[in-house]
Design a protein around this nucleic acid. Sequence first.
DNA 1: CGCTTCATTGACCCAAATCAATCTACGTGG
DNA 2: CCACGTAGATTGATTTGGGTCAATGAAGCG
Lengths: 238, 238
Amino acid sequence: MTNPLTRKLARFTDLDDEDVAELDRLAADPVERRASADLIREGDRPEDVILLLRGWAHRYKVLPNGDRQIMAYLIPGDLCDPHVFILDRMDHSIGLLSDALVATIPKRAILDVTNRRPAIAKALWWSTLVDEATLRHWLVNIGQRDAYDRIAHLFCEMWERLSEIGLTTGGGFEMPVTQEQLGDTMGLTAVHVNRVLQRMRSEELITLKGRQLVILDMDRMRRVSDFDPRYLHRTRRR
Amino acid sequence: MTNPLTRKLARFTDLDDEDVAELDRLAADPVERRASADLIREGDRPEDVILLLRGWAHRYKVLPNGDRQIMAYLIPGDLCDPHVFILDRMDHSIGLLSDALVATIPKRAILDVTNRRPAIAKALWWSTLVDEATLRHWLVNIGQRDAYDRIAHLFCEMWERLSEIGLTTGGGFEMPVTQEQLGDTMGLTAVHVNRVLQRMRSEELITLKGRQLVILDMDRMRRVSDFDPRYLHRTRRR
DNA sequence: CGCTTCATTGACCCAAATCAATCTACGTGG
DNA sequence: CCACGTAGATTGATTTGGGTCAATGAAGCG
């Protein structure tokens, strides 16, 4: 099961061989993209859905004064925009955070597959709802927690999502996100993010050099940020 | 068109007479509920979807330390939880902000209607995506704007949504939300919300007594908070 | 090897929080 | 009809988490 989309959706529903084959067909013919390219720009009317197969991307919005808010991180297996089907124009942009491998899927193809394969349709719907739940948790995070807890919560979530697709090694994973970007995610300045990271290091909670983050004490990390992974719905409803 | 759900969905798609009749059937047999009751509690596994016909409700989450974050306001015509169909347990609660009239719709009934009436299915999907876009805008709001601008943005959004269902009178509308709750919405304290409101009053930007809010200068309100109503998608895609 | 992008550190500042009283408007029971 | 009780609004005094400004290090790379 090399296709990360299949890997992700299989967590939600049972997929039969034909479902898997369909998903592989969607991910066929992927293209390399260089880091920091935008996949979709605010105001676009995209006609395709982009599937991320390798690398990270982020969903973000820039205000008139230049401030930037990151609203989501996309990792392998994520579809950039199921919205495409109904909404008019993009109200935000999607940019790469690392070199990446992406597949471009025409709207048509998605519609066909979801019509023919109810299991896939259901899994995509499920994944949309998980995205929405994640957004709600980010809101709680930014609205109510202090800088330290916010960052702890974000790290827990990243680890959890990456572990679902096999991209963690123990408590460690590769995180191609600068401190500036972490700040734009949590409504903090890069300077303050830096100080919080220093503190986490001095408390031996994490290790972070280059793009390698290691969570040394997962229990403490979760406790401090009140992280409850249930909203990511790793398990199926019976 | 007295049914506010019909009124809301009609903005998205053309509904024929039969669609309208179906929606009226869903909203049949509503019940009065008193303010401050919870409609759904975190941890529940709701078996029905609740439709709000009159009054306001809010989606919120309480942290272990007692802090509360409000994640959405629900107004007449809103469905409390389409999520019910796929997700497991509620990861947040929904409570009333005022006396209200609500209809309880069994899952089954929604499934039937969406199977039989594609226009309704499409409109519900659209409305879910609008909810998600709204959440993204709240994130930007809390993450990047200062207290004054946040509150201005929220007031613009409230006015916009209420005007869609005919609940505004010029720049005014009834807002059954305390300053404490406004604070829990925007990640601010009630005290600070109060001071911002004082300032808006002194600048003759608003009038607010009891539950009656009047926006005196809509242009200024929008300009200051960089409010762009497009994310609420009042108009249809051609 | 020189650039450029990130990370780090220090000094100082401010928006919003905190703490602590009032004040006001209502709804209720007597 | 009125005294109370209570939820919500208001105000003042003080504190603080995080921002701002400004350098100075590192590290990766063409």
